[in-house]
């Protein structure tokens, strides 16, 4: 308890939070997968959530993007309560979600994927007689360049490598102009070289975007991280810098026997 208290002091950075949760809870068949999570992410922050399998990390992201409805608690994006307004509306209000296994439109080209993502006029009748520009827009070129996909614009997504698929999904999320980006293990299944590139990409994003990342790999976390939130059994166990977290007795106790944290 003491640890949580200290950590929350660390987290109160100067800027007003862009994303805030209040006692966010979800129960599956009475089992609380996420318990009373109070999260506060500052504008422009790069936050990493770590925790063992089943700690509720992915469920937390599912709650934030509307995939799962909370049993209790609220989610605020700036001064708007986005709890339970539906996935599409949450996405429109500025939450971008990248999944662990890349979900993209496989039978469409990279450019088409980006076009669907960057089109911000999302209503049926706004699109009814709207034409699609044959070539990429400046914005689409910029986002493709940033994610290293510029050379693959005309390729079908189904022809891309696993790493490229991850970047394509990230590029799509970026094209949405989200206020906050939720990333679920962005380096999962990547080669060492691809992981390096992803780390660089995230650090590059951190200035202009607010990013919330779930990660397993402590080495990766140390490279990208400012503030870490540790989840354990659905609740926030601790919050702080990598240094603080690694020396936090509660964290050490929770992870006792697991080498993930101390020796990774």
């Amino acid at each position: 308890m003491n640890a949580v208290h200290r950590a929350s002091q660390v987290a109160t950075v100067s800027a007003a939070p862009i994303l805030r949760t209040q006692k966010l809870t979800v129960r599956f068949d009475e089992f609380p997968a996420v318990r009373e999570v109070d999260l506060s992410i500052a504008d422009g922050e790069l936050r990493v959530i770590i925790g063992a399998n089943g700690a509720g990390k992915s469920t937390l992201l599912d709650l934030l993007c509307g995939k799962t409805l909370p049993s209790e608690g609220e989610i605020w994006l700036r001064d708007r309560n986005i709890t339970g307004i539906g996935e599409a509306a949450i996405a429109r209000s500025g939450v971008g979600r990248k999944f662990q296994t890349p979900t993209v439109f496989k039978d469409m080209t990279v450019l088409e994927n980006l076009q669907v993502a960057s089109n911000r006029r999302v209503r049926v009748f706004q699109n009814l007689f709207d034409r699609v520009k044959p070539g990429p827009s400046d914005k689409e070129i910029a986002v493709a360049e940033r994610t290293g996909l510029l050379g693959s614009m005309k390729r079908r997504a189904s022809e891309l490598s696993h790493g490229q698929l991850q970047w394509l999904e990230l590029a799509m999320v970026l094209s949405q102009d989200p206020k906050i980006i939720l990333l679920d293990e962005p380096a999962a299944g990547m080669t060492a070289a691809e992981t390096d590139k992803t780390a660089e990409l995230l650090l590059d994003l951190a200035g202009g975007h607010t990013v919330l990342v779930i990660e397993h790999d402590m080495a990766f976390v140390r490279r990208i991280c400012r503030t870490i939130t540790v989840m354990h059994q659905g609740a926030v166990l601790a919050e702080g810098t990598a240094e603080e977290i690694e020396h936090n007795p509660a964290v050490i106790e929770a992870y006792l026997g697991s080498a993930t944290l101390s020796h990774a």
Binding site: K67, A91, K106, D107, M108, E112, V116, V122
Partner: peptide, 15 residues
């Protein structure tokens, strides 16, 4: 076409 390919992704893009 995007919806046919991946409904959930289209939804998380705001459609």
């Amino acid at each position: 076409k995007a919806i046919r390919e991946d409904e959930a992704r289209a939804r998380y893009l705001g459609y």
